[in-house]
């Protein structure tokens, strides 16, 4: 195990937000817009990211995800609107250094120095972030051990696989213990095992209190690890938790599987608390508003009508359906 990093002043997202008196909002954007000539890359984006949460920006290629991250990381300017990170104003030159010190960035291209070793890459960035030597060395060891690449620390990065490079890039973004971590497609082009390692590591960082802003077009990844998701296609089309997004599109539905659906059962249900909207063989699908209150009543009505209930399950549209409906503007 690596030596623990000693932190005299914890730089967690919560601590950062508390210092700024932000009541939990670490990133805020209001009407954020970026144009490149006649092309509007990001249009009128408003959202907030709470401290300690994983916020996923989900969208197709060219949706403007990278542009959003670059604006928030003070790499490119905004055309209009405003954004704040930890109370610091994005786009105000006096705040740019403060923002850069408090964030870590993993761009879509890892951008490591291939002719340097993994250790040397991290050490270089640690120096630029003004990490003291002892803390720098401890952080490098800690993250390389956590990511399983400590034994290869002295090898040139150019000899590494894509997955290993991505791990080093993530370690690089964390070397200065930032409050916010921006990850731009962190698992793109990785094999399933490397993707899982990266996802698990992101969840570990969340446990440590880091706020994570994740750009992805991987729906499964977004659903698995994000607390909230914004669907972006130049404009922000929807935002909410995966469950909220699913329910907003499809409503709440309950499926009841019976041994046999008889005419008697269907007739009895007409008098009961809920009517099935769809019958699929021996499955009945009900619209519900408050499933915890309505489901027992439905089951009771079915049993009273002579039905033998086998399963009761929730039926929701998948995040993929939600995403496609928004991005393709389907009804």
């Amino acid at each position: 195990m690596g030596r623990p990093v000693r932190r005299t002043a914890p730089n967690t997202a919560a601590a950062f937000a508390a210092r700024r008196g932000l009541e939990g909002r670490l990133i805020e954007a209001e009407n954020l817009t970026r144009k490149f000539g006649d092309l509007t890359a990001v249009d009128d984006l408003s959202f907030r990211v709470n401290d300690g949460e994983i916020f996923g920006l989900l969208g197709p290629n060219g949706a403007g995800k990278t542009t959003v991250v670059r604006m928030l990381a003070c790499l490119i300017s905004k055309s209009s609107g405003s954004a704040r990170i930890g109370g610091l104003e994005v786009g105000r030159p006096a705040d740019a250094m403060g923002i850069r010190k408090s964030i870590g960035l993993v761009p879509d291209n890892v951008g490591l120095y291939e002719d340097l070793s993994a250790y040397r890459n991290l050490d270089f960035f640690g120096k630029l972030y003004e990490c003291p030597p002892a803390a720098r060395a401890a952080a490098i060891e800690r993250f390389l051990r956590m990511l399983g690449v400590w034994e290869k620390r002295d090898l040139l990065v150019g000899t590494f696989s894509k997955g290993m490079k991505q791990k080093i890039a993530i370690a690089r973004a964390l070397i200065h213990d930032p409050s916010v971590l921006f990850l731009d497609e962190p698992t793109a082009n990785l094999d399933p095992e490397a993707s899982k390692t990266v996802r698990d590591f992101i969840l570990e960082l969340k446990k440590e209190g880091k706020t994570i802003f994740l750009n992805t077009h991987n729906l499964d990844e977004a659903q698995r690890i994000c607390d909230r998701i914004g669907i972006l296609n130049t404009r922000l089309l929807a935002v909410g938790s995966p469950t909220e997004l699913e329910e907003a599109v499809g409503g709440r539905k309950v499926v009841v599987q019976l041994e046999e659906v008889t005419d008697h059962i269907l007739a009895a249900l007409k008098e009961g608390p809920a009517r099935p909207v769809v019958r699929e063989g021996n499955r009945l699908i009900f619209d519900v508003v408050d499933p915890e209150r309505e489901n027992p009543a439905i089951v009771e009505a079915l049993v009273r009508a002579g039905g033998r209930v086998q399963f009761v399950s929730r039926l929701s549209p998948t995040l993929e359906e939600v995403y496609l409906r928004h991005v393709r503007r389907l009804p």
């Binding site: 960035l105 761009p107 972030y129 973004a173």
Partner: peptide, 9 residues
Amino acid sequence: SLEPLLATP
């Protein structure tokens, strides 16, 4: 490698 470099303070 320029993007991560420019992202540093």
